[in-house]
Design a protein around this nucleic acid. Structure first.
Length: 158
DNA sequence: GCCAACGTTGGC
DNA sequence: GCCAACGTTGGC
């Protein structure tokens, strides 16, 4: 199984929004980047775990853990003319974009971006690289362990 | 709101 | 197939 980090703008879907969803599950629609799509379409397996990351917000960082809850399937919004994710170049016969469903595993103590950057062992994380814009990135087992065991231990909030 | 970095597009 | 222009991302 693999580990991932998936970005979401909390104004769009926050960890609390996810917690309020039926089955605490949401379709990860709207990805329009081929690399990120390929991760979902070709690499993700049901049961993979991912950090749920809040981006483009006052306090970016990891807000929880989710799991991959479905195989990949065509992203419905690419066919919807009213959606901001509508893609006129896609077709039902040959859908261009795919997504998986994601289910909340747990809301964790918040690990903000500044804290992630402080960890020497995390210096190689994709999401910490300069100008990284990929909304889905692989996380290796060592990085996962560092974050979950060292940074997510309950502690007082700053 | 700024800006750097990057992906995509489209003319040639 | 190159590459300039453009749009988007995302931290600050």
């Amino acid at each position: 199984m693999r580990y991932w980090l998936m970005k979401s703008e909390p104004s769009d879907c926050s960890i609390d929004d996810l917690a309020a969803m039926p089955n605490q599950t949401v379709a990860w629609y709207g990805v329009r980047n081929y690399q990120a799509r390929n991760f979902m379409r070709d690499m993700m397996k049901v049961g993979d775990l991912a950090f749920f990351y809040h981006s483009s917000c006052p306090r970016p960082g990891i807000a929880g853990i989710v799991c991959v809850a479905s195989p990949p399937y065509p992203d419905a919004t690419q066919f919807d003319e009213k959606s901001r994710f509508f893609d006129p170049k896609s077709s039902q016969e040959e859908p261009r974009w795919h997504n998986v469903d994601v289910r909340l595993v747990e809301k964790t103590p918040f690990v903000d971006l500044a804290t992630l950057k402080e960890q020497e062992t995390l210096a190689g994380m994709r999401v910490l690289q300069k100008a990284n814009r990929l909304s889905i990135t692989p996380v290796d087992a060592e990085e996962w362990r560092t974050i979950t065991t060292r940074l997510m231990a309950p502690k007082k909030q700053p």
